Amino acid sequence: MSTQLSTTFTTTLALVEQFQTALTTPPATAAESAKDAKDVEALPLLTASATALRAHVTKLSLLAITSPFTHSAIGTVLRELNESVLPSLVTAALLITPAQYTKAFQTEVLGLAKSVLTELLGLVREVQRVDDKKEQEKGAKESDLTKAEKEVVTRTTGRVWDACDVVIDVSQKGVVGFVMRRVEQWRDLVRDAVEEIEEWDPEDDDDDFMDELLDEDEKGQKDEEEDDEEETAALNEHKKLTLRFLKPVAQVYPAIINNRLKNAGNAPLASSTGIKTLESLMVNLQAVPDHVDEAAGGLYEADFERSAEYLQKTRKCAAKAVDLVMVPWGAADDAPADKFTTWAKTWLKVVEEVSKAIDEN
């Protein structure tokens, strides 16, 4: 029985590594086969397989740390993993294609599935070590695992659970839920940047700079010490304009979340146009926090040209995002305006006016 179990361990480890490779470089045939699959199949299959994997590793863990060590029971769990659970998990992940679920969601799922397999590898190897220990004790009275040995197995099992839970959460929330979570993250980054600019005081920076100069050469700098009121005034003016511009930009995120993503269901996935819109929406909303950081950096360094350049890039991406979802999902461009459509048109006018002020200064 021990030889048979050893072979099963080897098979499981080799299979997991092969599946990791498959997820790293999905074959072109996977995308073709997915075209024939119903949209509703991949995510439920992903949920079910991750749930089954979680249950199986629980059994595997308990069998490994509980005496007596039963080779046949552990072999059964491993064979079930090899023959059904793992193939189902990988198949589900490969059915997530850009054409049906967006490239970003595919990348997320493939990465999460690989994480599950990586953690599973760790657990299987730990159980294999337990098996090796029991083999060495063969013929003698079998001893229980030490507390430390048991903790290693349970800790490794916990990591597999966590990885499975993330996959289950993502698959149950679906593409729109995934997009919402990302948009919320980018929203928080923009809010943090705005708060940082609000708290920044140009006069404090000037004082700190003068203190450093005085520390370096107190006598030489005392004669030259004077506040640059013109530069400080300019910094304060640009800070004011920057905040006046960024606060409406920050409003884009909750507005899109509440009016175009929350309760959207599968409407954005109903057509290739909707998928492309989601892709473009994410690209533009993700770019905004980086542009805001660059604009803030230019402001802090009194590089107003650089700051204005990145504020305009911010405006371009934010305006594109708003325009992409100007009308409800699936509605014609000339459909009657809803609450968000009216808000969006007003928002575009406000941002255009503020942008003119920034260019003038």
Rank of each mutant, 00 (worst) to 15 (best):
W200Y: 14
V354S: 08
A37N: 13
A31C: 07
D165T: 09
L121P: 01
R191N: 15
R79M: 12
E224K: 15
D211E: 15
A163W: 00
V130D: 04
E226P: 02
A255T: 10
D188G: 13
K141C: 04
A193E: 13
L62H: 11
E229R: 12
L189Q: 10
T118R: 08
V166L: 08
G139W: 02
A50S: 12
K114M: 09
I256G: 01
K356F: 11
E294Q: 14
P289D: 07
H238W: 09
K276E: 15
T277Q: 10
D217E: 07
E225L: 14
K141P: 06
L112I: 05
A113H: 02
A22C: 07
Q251I: 01
I257W: 03
A270C: 07
Q172N: 13
D338E: 05
A30G: 09
K103N: 10
L43A: 05
A148E: 13
L241H: 00
S2Q: 10
E212H: 14
T47N: 12
N258D: 15
C317S: 13
A302T: 13
T70H: 07
T232Q: 14
A287F: 03
L285Q: 01
F178E: 03
K103A: 15
R79Q: 14
K35T: 13
Q185A: 14
L281F: 10
S61E: 05
S6K: 12
D228G: 11
A28L: 10
T91I: 03
V109E: 01
Q221N: 15
T25L: 08
T29M: 12
K349F: 09
A335Q: 05
L241W: 00
K356P: 06
D323C: 06
V130H: 00
W329Q: 03
A287S: 11
V252N: 06
I96R: 00
S171Q: 07
R187L: 08
A34C: 06
P254F: 04
E135Q: 15
E225M: 13
E195A: 14
D192Y: 05
L299E: 02
A140F: 09
R54Y: 11
A28Q: 14
M326A: 10
Q136Y: 08
T58W: 02
D165M: 05
E212S: 14
L285H: 07
N236V: 12
R54L: 08
M282Y: 09
N284F: 02
E80L: 10
L145A: 03
E360L: 11
P68H: 11
P248S: 03
Y310W: 10
G158T: 05
L53C: 02
